[in-house]
């Protein structure tokens, strides 16, 4: 009889002690908010394009944290999806959008066609379009996330999404992709196929900072 009593007492005491420890730990190590959301958000590309069906990257991060599919982010591509899968501990799934070619693009406004309607300014989620009503608009290229959202509202279709050009700074060292054809050493016969494109845009960009 007494052994039962001892066991009960001991177990009760143990339960009490562990309960206290747990209680203390829950206060001491309390985590504000849901850290997983921040982690998910850190992985998302922050284009704020809304292609996932949520109004921005943070809401989608919250949705993922609450169990939404991880394959709704076309700008992030497969790489982001795989990272999300790793973080969330779920199986990678193919993107539900048709996998687009993952070339980073930025919006470019054909400035002499712009009528200054400010519609694109309102559409831009990151305020990367500059301009005023009835005055020409332009895109701040370095802030453009390439989300596409300004293209649709334009009443005169003067916004193009153009791929970011490769320059000496972001060149990826893929030597094999330099289109050089080898020739016999016959002079005066250029067979280099790198075409020197004389685009005014590029010239403009280079001459500025």
């Amino acid at each position: 009889m007494s052994s039962i009593a001892i066991a009960v007492v001991v177990l009760t005491l143990l339960a009490l002690i562990f309960g206290l420890i747990l209680g203390y730990a829950s206060i001491k190590f309390k985590v504000e908010g849901n850290p997983i959301i921040d982690q998910v958000e850190a992985l998302l590309p922050q284009t704020q394009c809304g292609q996932c069906g949520y109004p921005g990257c943070r809401p989608y991060a919250e949705a993922i944290a609450n169990g939404d599919n991880i394959n709704k982010c076309p700008p992030g591509g497969t790489a982001t999806m795989e990272k999300l899968a790793g973080l969330m501990g779920v199986d990678p799934e193919p993107l539900n959008e048709v996998a687009q070619e993952n070339v980073k693009k930025v919006a470019y406004i054909r400035e002499d066609e712009c009528i200054g309607c400010t519609k694109c300014i309102q559409a831009c989620p990151v305020d990367a379009i500059l301009g005023a009503g009835k005055l020409m608009h332009t895109v701040i290229t370095k802030d453009c996330t390439g989300c596409d959202l300004c293209v649709e509202p334009c009443p005169v279709d003067c916004i193009d999404m153009i791929p970011v050009e490769q320059n000496l700074k972001n060149w990826d060292w893929k030597l094999a992709s330099i289109p050089v054809t080898l020739i016999e050493p016959v002079p005066e016969k250029s067979t280099v196929t790198i075409s020197v494109k004389q685009i005014d845009i590029a010239v403009k960009e280079d001459s500025q900072c």
């Binding site: 030597l175 330099i178 054809t181 080898l182 020739i183 067979t191």
Partner: peptide, 8 residues
């Protein structure tokens, strides 16, 4: 004139 390229 084109030349062969390779990494150093």
């Amino acid at each position: 004139m084109a030349f062969k390229i390779a990494s150093s």
